[in-house]
């Protein structure tokens, strides 16, 4: 089994303690053949950016239910850019009010998924975002 595999980071920034969504998404991505680095709860933007760098991931998936997304997400994006990780895609899941979506996308978030999204849609979005066929892996 040589060749490229999609590597993704799934993390929960901030202080809310609900990680079921993140875990379900992590499993769906694994079942689609991706290598998922799962860092768990209460990650600071600094921890997330550092992990993304060391693990050289293609996609960073962040689950936020606390309402602090407009504080946490810009910081994560800024740190990723500062470190030169320009090609890393950032996906967000959780409770994000509609009015925040355009601004987040403007900042560089690739896609946003609300509660109840079919995991297959999320998997497909991850694959398309990287523009790599998993068949190569």
């Amino acid at each position: 089994m040589t060749g490229r595999k999609l590597r993704v980071l799934i993390a929960k920034p901030g202080l809310d303690g609900h990680d079921r969504g993140a875990k379900i998404v992590a499993r769906a991505l694994r079942d689609a053949g991706m290598e998922v680095i799962y860092t768990g709860l209460r990650q600071t933007p600094e921890m997330i950016a550092e992990a993304a760098l060391q693990e050289d991931v293609d996609v960073v998936g962040l689950s936020i239910l606390s309402g602090a997304h407009m504080t946490l997400l810009p910081r994560v994006l800024e740190l990723l850019r500062q470190q030169g990780q320009h090609d890393v895609q950032v996906m967000v899941g959780g409770i994000i009010p509609d009015e925040d979506v355009p601004r987040l996308k403007e900042m560089g978030v690739t896609a946003i998924f609300g509660p109840g999204t079919n995991t297959q849609i999320i998997v497909q979005a991850f694959i398309e975002a990287v523009g790599t066929s998993l068949a190569r892996g």
């Binding site: 089994m1 595999k5 992590a26 689609a32 053949g33 290598e35 799962y38 768990g40």
Partner: peptide, 12 residues
């Protein structure tokens, strides 16, 4: 062994 994917959780 089924999907070839993995969940890497040591960083937790």
């Amino acid at each position: 062994p089924f999907s070839g994917g993995a969940i890497l959780g040591d960083r937790i």
